[in-house]
Design a protein around this nucleic acid. Structure first.
Length: 202
DNA sequence: GACCAGATTGTCT
DNA sequence: GACAATCTGGTCA
């Protein structure tokens, strides 16, 4: 597959990586077929000065993947029933990552609809746990490299898009930090993002 | 469409 | 034993 992001793309400042990932394509090839989507919402999780990050309190068995080399997946289980997908960024051992919060469905839409059990395009991937479900990602992918398949991120079209920066949602700590990025005007942002837009009046 | 409460389990204290 | 980077369904407007 062409255009797959290389490790260098993930090794910079986590905040920069979070911005650059907007508009790129997350794809997962499985025996059932390929499912992919354009990343429209991301969230940066830093190591230092970020109490909301899983890495804040140090390395544990759960967040070990976060401390691995850049360009790997960090997938964790939350609220007893959901998984969330992150991309490990920065230098190895630092413990930073970018949470992928929402996708605009592209390939394999019928497959994703079947996995999610709904037929509403806008709701197919508009949340961290939803896109994991739609792409068929499981905890088995925790720690795998995104530099080669079956799970990859590749460069998107070079369409210019405005980026909206806002504070985080759904986290108890440090929710005021401006670490969340999304593509302005996208119809596929997470429900939480829409809530923030209302609060911010934008 | 907006708001609220419940579901459910791995992980850490 | 308490909590968590969430989603869904129900209720009301």
């Amino acid at each position: 597959m062409k255009g797959i992001l290389r490790r260098r793309s993930y090794e910079g400042e986590t905040v920069d990586v979070a911005r650059r990932l907007l508009g790129t394509i997350l794809a997962h090839a499985t025996p059932e077929g390929i499912a992919s989507g354009r990343i429209v919402e991301t969230e940066a999780y830093l190591f230092q000065a970020d109490p909301a990050s899983h890495a804040y309190k140090g390395k544990t068995a759960r967040n070990a993947a976060m401390f691995g080399p850049a360009g790997r997946a960090y997938i964790y289980f939350i609220y007893g029933m959901h998984y969330c997908f992150n991309v490990v960024t920065g230098a190895e051992g630092v413990g930073e990552a970018v949470l992928i919060r929402a996708l605009e469905p592209l390939d394999g839409i019928p497959l994703m609809e079947r996995r999610r059990g709904i037929h509403n395009l806008r709701k197919l991937c508009n949340g961290p746990a939803k896109l994991v479900d739609a792409l068929g990602i499981t905890r088995a992918q925790n720690g795998v490299s995104l530099l080669r398949g079956p799970l990859t991120i590749r460069a998107g079209s070079s369409d210019a898009h405005d980026i909206v920066v806002s504070h985080r949602v759904g986290v108890g700590a440090a929710h005021t930090l401006p670490l969340r990025f999304c593509i302005k005007g996208s119809k596929f942002l997470s429900a939480a993002e829409n809530r923030v837009n209302r609060v911010l009046g934008s």
